[in-house]
Design a protein around this nucleic acid. Sequence first.
DNA 1: TAATTTACCCACTACTTTGGTAGGTATATT
DNA 2: AATATACCTACCAAAGTAGTGGGTAAATTA
Lengths: 148, 148
Amino acid sequence: MVSSTRGRYALRVLIDIAENSHGEYIAMKDVAARQEISLKYLEKILPILVSHHLVEGIHGKGGGYRLSRDPSEYTVGEILRLTENDIAPVACLQNDALPCSRAANCRTLPMWEELDRRISEYLDSITLADLMRSTEAAQDSIAASGRV
Amino acid sequence: MVSSTRGRYALRVLIDIAENSHGEYIAMKDVAARQEISLKYLEKILPILVSHHLVEGIHGKGGGYRLSRDPSEYTVGEILRLTENDIAPVACLQNDALPCSRAANCRTLPMWEELDRRISEYLDSITLADLMRSTEAAQDSIAASGRV
DNA sequence: TAATTTACCCACTACTTTGGTAGGTATATT
DNA sequence: AATATACCTACCAAAGTAGTGGGTAAATTA
């Protein structure tokens, strides 16, 4: 699994903040309701985003979170690398992997490396701005209208 | 994780059989020794390959396994789909996934679908024959020789 | 026929990750 | 002072991973 709920929820939260805010702070209570994600679980994900300066949070009434940058300046790859343990497709390519004594003669390693490269390349090519307002339904309606 | 040890070992076993056999049966004891994988664990993986007719096994002295087809007729994607629970990069695209009520409005689903498509396309484009004799070392020596 | 070698089968276990929940504290606003 | 919010720590249930142990069945060889 490249992405578990933690990474996927992180993406959805950031998109929700981007879509519902124009600089003001958004309460997680509202995001949780809109995204149908438990508030308690969101509270475990947000500190990761705060500590890496993807969002800024303020306490107290009227508080919440806002993005630190423009949506076009976040890539999906960056967000997943922070929230997932590792996005490598196989254990031997994970950051904490022990060196493998068979690596130099491994018949499959070059393939895994190329797959890893392709996954990263794709995820790094997509920004939060690309994801905003993007849905299957929207794409279908574009297709139906002939605007393809 | 796209591939756990089960799928990776399955690939290595099939490559080992392909490289060390010319039609005769190869004992798992020997594959286990060459690949440094526990024989007991291999014995859990092979029945999966037998039941899907990727290999044929015979009992008794001189027995073992051999490939059912030419190495060029196995794709990595096919092998991993049999040995891994699922190679989808996210839970909502797995075969046994429950329908998601948010799918039509999900901002991230099209991206996950495209990622899934790219992973499958790549893994389906590589055959066992491609992997045989392929190593980093071999690629390095090709590069060093200027034969790139 | 007996011994040996191999595939094959079933039960069990230790460990890690995932996806949460519970209950509270700190901080800011009204 | 009351309220609303972020933030923190601990805990838990379920599932998946990566095995091990202890056999049985079938084929070959001596």
